[in-house]
Write a protein that binds this DNA or RNA. Structure first.
Lengths: 201, 201
DNA sequence: CCACATCTGTAGTGAACACTACATATCTGG
DNA sequence: CCAGATATGTAGTGTTCACTACAGATGTGG
């Protein structure tokens, strides 16, 4: 029994192109025609490889969060809660205005509200954003245990806050705010984390 | 010459229903069938009154921002920059989790990314969000002039920051965060504004 | 070289979409 | 009561959508 004709395209490179289309137009705004053209394949190849449009989105999200996860590891490796917040928010200011990518964040652009039949998409995106928030929360829990954050501070609230600011910056970026504007937001936002930090001794 | 048959529905009540559909499903996710059913009218009445789907959205946005404008006036009437931020963000925490409305903010849920033919929608929403930001900035400029904010503070950056947090909270609300979670975010966020406030004398 | 398995390109499928033609109904002004 | 004007309900219009049937191409194992 043979193994069949081999695939003629690179799945990861195709995913990168699909990711950009979803990023720019959102899940519902992206059409199969746009996706296949960007990926350089025909619809049957797409469906054979990813199942359907939502499967392609999930694969693109997997790839996105995998790349992003590497960076998040660097973020939480910062020495203090304040440094974590600064590294995260300043990094986001830069990443979300990087001309190499569409503006904003795929986890927001992908779809905040969707129509009937795609109700699952916003949940999917929210779940991935929640993963980042969890990682931040764990880091802030540690910061509190280490005495880096005040004993009265709430690590979960801080993580939610940083996550919320990140999302807000993503929307700003996608609607035309430039890097400098985002950095100013990040700069102000970090001060709230600083206010929760223990005094320097 | 006669004046023609009078309209049988109330345009504002119909708009309220349309607003809720856009709010819940976004511009692209909302269908004319859903809109007409919610509004209690048939498609020809919709098109005669609002032109097309995008015209209906703009009319709904006008109504939304008009209602919201009343509240924003109360927000900027708070005595200090810190109080403005607190009233705004705490109010948003409550409004965006009010079960009387869909969760989140129409200016975000309406559409952050859209497909070909609706590229104008995200711009339209961004422009309305910018109006709020302008109002905040003017208020913070005044706060700085009054010595309420530090001489080193940047009112424009502060306004952008509060606006960004508001948007982030809207996304959180639409993805299931409850009122308490949003209030915690607001509470942390206010501390950044406080850090820019002059010392109490 | 053959049986089999998988991929690829062409060319569609039915369904859902935004939008509208048209006949009818209901008003005002004369 | 009639003419003109505008609204309404029915029943569609063409287009675009996600998705697929099918035939041919290209590989592997025997």
């Amino acid at each position: 029994m043979g193994m069949g004709r081999p695939r003629e395209f690179d799945a990861e490179m195709a995913l990168d192109q699909a990711m950009e289309v979803f990023w720019r137009h959102g899940y519902e705004g992206a059409t199969i025609a746009q996706l296949t053209e960007a990926m350089g394949i025909n619809p049957p190849s797409l469906y054979a490889c990813f199942g359907n449009k939502e499967g392609l989105l999930k694969a693109a999200l997997d790839r996105y969060t995998k790349l992003r996860g590497v960076w998040m590891d660097e973020v939480v490796a910062a020495p203090t809660a304040r440094a974590v917040a600064e590294r995260m928010l300043m990094g986001i200011a830069d990443k979300q205005t990087d001309p190499a990518n569409p503006p904003g964040c795929l986890l927001v652009q992908g779809g905040i509200a969707c129509g009937t039949g795609s109700e699952n998409v916003p949940f999917e995106l929210a779940a991935r954003r929640a993963q980042n928030e969890d990682q931040l929360r764990e880091r802030f829990v540690r910061a509190k245990a280490e005495g880096d954050l005040k004993p009265t501070s709430d690590p979960a609230a801080l993580a939610r806050y940083v996550s919320a600011v990140s999302v807000g910056m993503g929307v700003m970026a996608s609607s035309g705010s430039d890097r400098e504007a985002l950095r100013q937001v990040a700069d102000v936002a970090v001060q709230a984390v600083e206010a929760q930090s223990a005094e320097k001794t």
